[in-house]
Amino acid sequence: MPDHVVTDPILTAEGIVVRFGDLTAVDRVDLAVQRGSIYGLLGPNGAGKTTLIRVLATLLKPDAGRATVAGIDVVEDPGLARTRLGLAGQFAAVDEYQTGRENVQMIGRLYRLSARESRQRTDDILERIGLVDAADRRVGTYSGGMRRRLDLAASLIGRPEVMFLDEPTTGIDPRSRVGIWDLVQDLVRGGTTVLLTTQYLEEADVLADRIGVIDHGRIITEGTADELKATMGGTIIEVEIDPAHRDEYETALAGVGEGETTFDEQRNLLRIPAREGAESLLAVGRALDRAELVPVDIETHKPTLDDVFLAVTDDTPSDDAPAPSDGQAPGRKARR
């Protein structure tokens, strides 16, 4: 981990390991999340994000390591930990045949609220998520975005100190996505700490105070969005090439720029992280000229989280990774 100091960690993990048979889904993960912040776990499908959340939310016992929520060990005392945490999983786990209000009230009762308190808090929550008008309609009539908001808000009734959101915007339209983002930010303003997983770089960039990039069960890099971008150098130079001559280009450009040059096979782009944009661009030009290579195109841009992600994760798409690594049975995956 970087030398970042978390002064008031409300969520911690030390050396968490989860194995499914031969597959290590979560591999010695450490975490420390500052109270009142949003931590984003960014990674491709099958990276171990869901499995890690399941451990932290007391659904799965790790094979090694320990984790605490609000100072409570989730393995030693899961019952107490559950009073302090809320979980909104990858699927909107709301009952279609109950109304929005009934769904939230039911969760309230299961958080041990009295019937009266549960009713009162439900009203507050429905107002907060803009579902007052739809509150007495069955959830079966809701749009995907409304269901997600309801699902997320249902857990809020227990006033959890830590909320786990597993891919809160996967599968919903862009406009509803912004609605969820607002809700998450609103939550944090109210003092809740959020750990969310996402495959969307933009989401992590907009929401997360700190980001951990996870792949093959390991957190490979961690920092704020700006820190992560800075590791890529100040500028990215993208050279579009004829892939038949990739080796010649790579030889010619070796040693130019800062850090590791990567190749995007889909778009035939060589990405070169560089500190000084103009100077490095000229250096690239001179190197190519010496080697008598004329690329299709050259562009420069400021690094995005995309670049970080592509640089640090394995470039083989992990969609083929065994399904259990994300804690899903194959049957469930097929239902998506």
Binding site: L87, G89, A93, L110
Partner: peptide, 18 residues
Amino acid sequence: LSSGVIDRFRSLPMARSA
């Protein structure tokens, strides 16, 4: 189970038998 409702229930401080 497949809709994730059981996961939600298991994350709540409710009785396991319920």
